[in-house]
Design a binder for these strands. Structure first.
Length: 428
RNA sequence: GCGGUUAUGGCGAAGUGGUUAACGCACCGGAUUGUGGUUCCGGCAUACGUGGGUUCGAUCCCCACUAAUCGCCCCA
């Protein structure tokens, strides 16, 4: 037997109903915030991610699905959405469009070669937005408000918005150097992970669970002390807008994003729900003011966020939220005998053409079993078509909820059903 | 890349070094004529992840591999 590749999954009908519902709600939300959809390829030139995401990141160093096509080009299944969107923005010169900033959303699978665990798969689906062209702190706040609404509109409650400012490149470098200087004398006292982090990403050291009690932690330099005036003011403005919208948030100077392109605003939305698993991050985002230029466009500020649908669904489960997925049937046709079956097939097709959700038996089941099926499918109405009915050119119509049953002529059946499904009392 | 746990029929889940491997769910049929639920009766399936090894004999013991799952790293 051949199974799905490691870290991928089939989404079967019971789940796909939820996916469709979530997708629809996110689409609606995007409209209200006035974002338009962009669809980019699932694979791109490898170089795009090397330059966009950053050569030193985990994603590029060990998580990319990279392959060579028959023409010798190095291609990579996209590990995230921002690089592609920015590439498209530059390629199509969208910075020249009259309406700015450019507000885009996307939806689709991303690929990362990682060890799967709860809330993490090798193919996962992200919904994300990008705003290009504006360096207004108000848009940072809008993006965070949008991100939160994605969850709230579905009923989630155990949410935490965590924000931080990484400052601009200058602030970041200064802070980074300060951290290295601060921790280097204690390097041998730190855990193995942290010794690594000190070289790769010193900010992470602050986040370590093992070394939390080390005295050097408490005296470590904070990013806030290294933000220059522009960065500090910008961050203050962003927070003011959040407060104005009554959006609660936490500041966490240790919040780090894993991708190189981030600067200034960085944020994550976490779930506190019981049983969500070890991974608590639902979505993450931030500002990337240098990225458009890095990918060959004009100097253009940008900000965005992405959420994983898988984690969103996990969070819903953890909070015991049931999505209103309807799947009852309007009409089930019970047919008895060959003649009736032929009539039933035609009737079903006519009903379907007129917009009614209908099904019938294809398993050659007895009448009782057909009723059982109708019951299981939660059919609102059952048509019974047997010899008696055929003889009189009639059809028995049973309302499953009340159990009442009436007879109608074949011609009357469809208008009658449409009327009674609409909520009218056609039979009275 | 590292660590823990697990691997029995469509699903869940017992079990034993040795004749036909429980049970529950699901599904199908029946309980007299063409009506759903419950109950009762009956039926059902190429089931012990793969490959080695120990043994007279292994689903059960050992090893390897694969996969799932949870966690670490990191992230969405």
């Amino acid at each position: 037997m051949i199974n799905v590749p490691r870290g991928t999954e089939d989404i079967l009908p019971s789940q796909s109903k939820k996916w469709q519902y979530v997708e629809k709600r996110l689409n609606d939300l995007s409209k209200r915030f006035n974002y338009e959809e962009i669809r980019t390829p699932l694979f791109e030139s490898t170089e795009l991610f090397q330059r966009g995401v950053g050569d030193t990141t985990d994603i590029v160093q060990k998580e990319m699905y990279t392959f060579e096509d028959r023409g010798g080009r190095s291609l990579t299944l996209r590990p995230e959405g921002t690089a592609s969107v920015v590439r498209a923005y530059v390629q199509h010169k969208m910075f020249g469009l009259p309406q700015q900033p450019t507000k885009l959303f996307y939806f689709g699978p991303m690929f990362r070669y990682e060890r799967p665990q709860k809330g993490r798969t090798r193919q996962f689906v992200q919904f994300g937005i990008e705003v290009l062209g504006s360096a207004d702190p108000a848009i940072d706040a809008e993006v965070m408000a949008f991100a939160l609404e994605c969850y709230k509109t579905l009923g989630l409650k155990s949410l935490r918005l965590v924000v931080n400012s990484l400052g601009d490149a200058e602030s970041r470098t200064n802070h980074r150097n300060a951290l290295v200087d601060h921790f280097s004398p204690h390097k041998n006292e730190l855990c193995g992970d942290c010794q690594n982090r000190l070289e790769k990403n010193p900010l992470r050291v602050l986040d370590c669970k093992k070394d939390r009690e080390h005295p050097a932690m408490k005296t470590a330099p904070s990013i806030f002390d290294y933000l220059n005036d522009y960065s500090r003011t910008y961050f203050e403005e962003v927070k003011t807008y959040l407060e104005k919208m009554d959006i609660p948030y936490e500041e966490d100077p240790n919040l780090v994003r894993g991708l190189d392109y981030y600067n200034h605003t960085a944020f994550e939305i976490m779930s506190d729900a019981e049983g969500f698993g070890a991974i608590t991050t639902l979505s993450g985002g931030g500002r990337y003011n240098g990225l458009v230029q890095e990918l060959g466009g004009p100097e253009t500020p940008g900000i965005g966020f992405a959420l994983s649908i898988e984690r969103l669904l996990l969070a819903l489960e953890a909070e015991n939220i049931l999505l209103p997925v309807e799947d009852s049937l309007d009409v089930y046709i019970v047919a008895l005998g060959t003649e009736a079956k032929r009539e039933a097939v035609k009737l079903a097709f006519d009903l379907r053409k007129s917009g009614v959700k209908v099904d019938l038996d294809y398993m050659d089941k007895k009448m009782k079993a057909q009723f059982k099926t109708a019951d299981r499918l939660q059919a609102k109405i059952v048509f019974v078509l047997g010899e008696d009915e055929l003889k009189n050119n009639q059809i028995s119509i049973k309302h499953m909820e009340t159990g009442t049953q009436i007879e109608k002529s074949l011609e009357e059946a469809i208008p009658y059903v449409k009327e009674s499904l609409r909520g009218g009392n056609a039979d009275e």
